[in-house]
Amino acid sequence: MPFERRVQVGSSSGLHARPAAAFVRAAAAHPHRITIGRPDGPAVVASSILSVLGLHVGYGEEVVLTAEDELAVGALDELSALLGQDLDRED
């Protein structure tokens, strides 16, 4: 039974450029395999910037974060909180 978190992307430009880089860096900082995708679409590795950019997720779209390992639940919480913020406003 995989562990999941659903969240709406809060960055105004979507999951592109700076927000995508911030998300991928945070995902790569955890040892667990975490994936990201649309609820009805294919999932990609969260620590892959090219795959995340290739999803072309826009502002306000819902995405699903998934991990197989129970130990990754904390990471899922942290990453979903990050996705919900407007990372474009950070400097």
Binding site: A17, S47, S48, I49, S51
Partner: peptide, 16 residues
């Protein structure tokens, strides 16, 4: 620097 760091992130992409 932000441009260069983004490039480094692409180079280190595990899926690539």
């Amino acid at each position: 620097a932000a441009v260069l760091q983004a490039q480094a992130l692409i180079v280190g992409d595990p899926t690539l």
